[in-house]
Design a protein around this nucleic acid. Sequence first.
DNA 1: TTGTAGGCGTTATCAG
DNA 2: CTGATAACGCCTACAA
Lengths: 350, 350
Amino acid sequence: MDKSRVTIKDMAMKLNLSTSTVSRALKDHHALKKETIRMVKNLAHKLNFIPNIAALNLLNKRTNRIAIVVPEITNYFFSMALTGIQNVIASTEYTLMVCLSNESYQEEVDIIENLWRIQIDGVLVSRSSKTNNFDHFRQLQSKGIPIVLFDRDCKGLEADKVLVDDYLGAFQAIEYLIKSGCKTIAHIAGVKNLLTKNQRLQGYLDALKKHGLPVIEKNIVHAKGFTYEDGIKPAKLLLNSKHPPDAIFAANDRLAISAMYIANKLNLRIPDDISIIGFDDEPHSIYLNPALSSVWQPGYGMGMLSARILLKHLSEKGALVNEFRHEVFKPELITRASSNKILTSSKNKG
Amino acid sequence: MDKSRVTIKDMAMKLNLSTSTVSRALKDHHALKKETIRMVKNLAHKLNFIPNIAALNLLNKRTNRIAIVVPEITNYFFSMALTGIQNVIASTEYTLMVCLSNESYQEEVDIIENLWRIQIDGVLVSRSSKTNNFDHFRQLQSKGIPIVLFDRDCKGLEADKVLVDDYLGAFQAIEYLIKSGCKTIAHIAGVKNLLTKNQRLQGYLDALKKHGLPVIEKNIVHAKGFTYEDGIKPAKLLLNSKHPPDAIFAANDRLAISAMYIANKLNLRIPDDISIIGFDDEPHSIYLNPALSSVWQPGYGMGMLSARILLKHLSEKGALVNEFRHEVFKPELITRASSNKILTSSKNKG
DNA sequence: TTGTAGGCGTTATCAG
DNA sequence: CTGATAACGCCTACAA
């Protein structure tokens, strides 16, 4: 920080006033002469006075810092969420700190513990897929630091939550596949997690059940992670089997794209031989050949709301809030050529 | 911030010492009894004492905050760079603030001006493509705030710079295309910028010249931005023309993918009819059909180095540094099927 | 070897 | 209506 900043003291001297008067004038204290206020404000404007944040923080026992903890940002959903969060935070006096857990439970724990050390006011969290225990979050809360969870729920943890209806997104995707004529629909699920219910898997299961399709165990494969590479093995497993499925619903676009890749290698036609639907609707999905159907999530909006909720908490500090908000956004199935069996083969529906 | 933190005063009272002694003991002041130091440190450890950052900041006239200003983060290169930066910053007492200019000059100016208001210690910048005037950066520097530029150069601005050799990347791409038999190579360039020299374009031009190929004006098209959409028009322009080129080198992968998309629509075979090479090597490029050749940039490493350079500056504050570092990373051409004419058609080279 | 005092910039309380 | 004082938590001359 540069040293040439004007302080209240400087202005007080120039105006032959006390620092308290200047301070009060700057906040339009009612009991001051209008003239005094005018004078002070004029000078402040002329000298480009800006209150020293460190001094205020010391006084208010705050740091004006918010942290966001996410598994990664090289992913469309998280980068959009971060963009939304940042756009809200940017117009406040808060500073946003980005922390990456790399989908690792241990890294996440370390980060959270460190957040207390380095003194932040509040936290936005999308937990790692490996996280089965939420005590690190509880510990932070117990120190008075509010947490807003977004995208990935922590069952049993009481906090504000901004989620997307994964169940619905999956359900709709499966129903669409069924209606387009698919009979054996496989699912490449995300990382297996002991504690948190996998809503996308559940939506898949319930949709099958609703339409009287059998659940075939070997048609449900858990990926080891969420990268393209992680999708290769599950896709091979499914598509190389004796009775390959006629559709794959993947837990995200990367896994879906890997499945498309393998299908291509095996000379399977998409969607004629195998329909594929992803989740996330990354921008490049539309430029694949064929274009990938996917479930879109409102990352930007979720980010904005999460940030607003956290800011609200911080401004209400002291007023103990026992009620947590629980917001659920609706995803949207975007159908494209990769799942458009009907459209492609018989041209009778859009 | 929670209020239950232990302060030096608390410890001083418990130990019947003055705060100065405690303060000194914590930093191993030479003139203190070993015994005293031990006692203080033990207690500090037992009570989990952590110095109050706001107090230190007030004292040191710092804020411990660093800002990174980038056009966007929903892009592989920037998100990797940010990841690298964050990983360096995370182990320090600094907090990283992410600011997005959305490729807009005006937004960038606003951000930079605001950075001074909100008091940050240093800035990492990758300027917007529309930025032709660097006075906002100079103004910030003149207030004593160090700036490290990364990825996108600002010609004429004196600052630390961490760049990638765009010229070389483009040159190698074009040479490769020429060697693989392409005769008319087009270029989809990025946003036209009055001031900064377009190194990728220059590399393209020089490679053509070196190999005696003519520069055809209409085979150089500037995109309006860097999104997939921005690539559609240039691609149509090139591929719909009377004498379409037999290769396209695009300024980034998104533009290249749009070109692939249009080529597909026009039933042009890639690479037989048209070779395509991008820039950035986004992870999904390998899963396209055909896989996209691209110039890889070491985003993560560039981010790390930029952060280290900035930290160095901040630690040396006071010692006026007149020498700026100027680091240039080497990119790497990754060849895949989209440009592999020889391999694909006659199988005689890899 | 340790304590005292003053200051970093701001605000709140109490006087006047 | 305005000023003096203390306080936030820490550090560092200067004293002792």
